[in-house]
Design a protein around this nucleic acid. Structure first.
Lengths: 211, 211
DNA sequence: TTAGAATACGAATAATCATTCGCGTTCGGT
DNA sequence: ACCGAACGCGAATGATTATTCGTATTCTAA
């Protein structure tokens, strides 16, 4: 049974004065620290407020509930990966295979750098897969990914390319997450990234006209 | 800071009489039901006991704590996927590409059939990646996967093959999980499985002597 | 300077949970 | 039939948590 109404995630009140903007900023910073250092289970409104050097009451002035803090953090992560895809995968001055490899490397590296945060965020957040913000995030990257697939597999049908674009995105995020759970060294992460890029490149190379 | 001692996961007491064996069985069945229907957040010892038609006290006779129930469920899942890999990927009477496709299809299908359970289990359990039981599970499948890679990429070096075996396992589990989160139809799941198999097959085909 | 808006506070509230323990019941062997 | 062990029970305990709200403090504009 899905919840009939999704709980409020929008800020309760907008910071007006400078001190409250700083308060919100330090709250978010503290939330990241608590999540990475203590994990999802110990992510508590009081702990976040204490870490920020602020009282719980102040926290609730600007966030309607605990979920809203997590959601905000998740949005920031989406923003980051979206930007990386735009600049690396969309860099048409380089050959497709090279672009894909660079994107995978950057994505896996960033995933591993922030592994504690991202893992805890995954554990703490419900499935935001259907949230409009999540869809918007995927939509944003879609055009870049599709343009990339068109360049890498020009002979494939549009339908094949649409699917391949989804597959590329899914493969990157899925394997990236799994790799980060292993806490690999930088060199290992690069090896996984290169192998993942090779798999996708191999798949794209197989595509030919016909559905 | 990692926990210095990992909490007890072994049963507190072994069922001796028939009635207590049935009690444990109905407790596990109830745990699956609660996890799939209510989700990880509402997975509660009292709810599990109630669903099993049993008191909390009885639950604690056979499980030292809540985690132990989840761990037991996780082990059952590991057992299932291990068996599937053995029979499908290890079936040397069929061509490698076909074997891989069959394995992916079965894995993705089962992942999607039990999606609520597996997702909730993921959300509820800590990272058992370093638990000896988890390592044993991977070790068990390793030989079959390596034999498969040897058959599919005979010209690759042993080192390449070891890595490729890890990559195959990781790709299957990572993408399988991500696909199941989308709650796809059976046909969609099959399409993702085939595409994933094609990616891996393409990667294996690229392997040649040299590191 | 000052009123009132904005901000900050944190003890109090209400709810939920994991786990325990003392007691009554049932079983299996003799 | 009988006894000790195994089993089953569930109210009570102790701890943690999200969220509220009445009050105190600080800012800003006039």
């Amino acid at each position: 049974m899905p919840r009939s109404k999704r709980p409020a995630l929008a800020p309760r009140k907008q910071p007006v004065q400078a001190r409250s903007s700083e308060l919100v900023a330090s709250l978010l910073e503290a939330a990241v620290r608590v999540l990475s250092r203590e994990g999802a289970a110990r992510f508590t409104t009081i702990r976040v407020a204490e870490t920020a050097g602020v009282s719980v009451g102040s926290l609730y002035q600007y966030f309607p509930n605990k979920q809203a803090i997590l959601f905000r953090l998740q949005q920031d992560e989406w923003e980051k990966t979206g930007a990386a895809i735009d600049t690396l995968l969309g860099d048409t001055s380089r050959a497709p295979a090279e672009r894909l490899r660079a994107t995978m490397r950057a994505f896996f590296q960033s995933e591993c750098d922030e592994a504690p945060l991202r893992l805890a965020l995954d554990a703490a957040t419900p499935n935001y897969h259907d949230a409009p913000e999540s869809k918007a995030h995927r939509r944003r990257s879609r055009s870049v990914v599709r343009a990339f697939v068109a360049a890498a597999a020009p002979r494939a049908s549009p339908s094949q390319r649409r699917f391949a674009a989804d597959l590329l995105f899914m493969t990157m995020t899925a394997i990236g997450k799994q790799v980060s759970e292993r806490r690999p060294t930088e060199a290992e992460a690069r090896r996984w990234a290169d192998a993942t890029a090779a798999m996708v490149t191999g798949y794209l190379a197989q595509l030919s006209p016909g559905d």
